[in-house]
Structure formats: structure tokens, C-alpha cells
Amino acid sequence: MSIPGSWYLILSALLFGIGALGLLIRRNVLIMFMCLELMLNAANLSFVTFSRMLGDIAGQSAVFFVLVVAAAEVVVGLGIVVAIFRRRSTAVADDISGMRD
């Protein structure tokens, strides 16, 4: 309770940076997805921190909805990855450069 909110915000910024870095430097689509999840978690951490700092529960409701949307996004995204893999048998982003074939 006595930890300053800015510590959590710095931690959140660092986690977001790690996620963005992974998204930029990795080629495997699955790991890029995981990095997206890391960035969503960083946003959730700042939401909860601001919710505590401002004494407003709405931030935690926002995190609840972010969790639901993240679950839906992962389901659809992994479905697309599996569909692409069946057609092209690759999970590397550089090999998936065309939408038509």
C-alpha cells in the first residue's frame, strides 16, 4: 500500500517496452502474439495503478474489459495462425507476405 504509484508506472513502461521490442525483433508469429499480451498487461498494470491513485474503481472495470477483449483477440488470432499454417506451413512472419495465396 505504501509503494508510490510512480514505481508501478515505471514498471509498466518497462514491460511495455519489452513487449514492443519483442514485437519488433521476433519473427515467429506466436511470439509476436505473446509480446502483444505483454503490452496489454502493461496497460492493465497502469490502469490498476491509476485506479488506486485516483480512488476510482472504473480503472479496474476497464481492466476487466481489456481481459475479455484480449481473450477474444487471442482466440481469433490463433485461429488465423492455424489457418495460415495449414495453407503455407510456416509460422514466420517474413514468409507470410501475401494475402492472396
Binding site: 508501478y8 498487461n41 490498476v48 485506479s51 479496474q60 481481459l67 481473450a71 482466440v75
Partner: peptide, 24 residues
């Protein structure tokens, strides 16, 4: 949990660690 968001901590474990990672 450290910020007293117990509900979200539980949902985080159940949804992320329990469902999304298993899906991955």
C-alpha cells in the same frame, strides 16, 4: 494484489495463465 485489486488478480490467473497460455 499489492494494489488491493484481488478480483483482477484472480481473473488474471484464471484467464491468462489458465486459458490463454494453454491455448498458446
Amino acid at each position: 494484489i499489492e494494489q488491493q485489486a484481488e478480483f483482477l488478480a484472480a481473473v488474471q490467473i484464471i484467464v491468462y495463465a489458465g486459458a490463454i497460455v494453454v491455448l498458446f
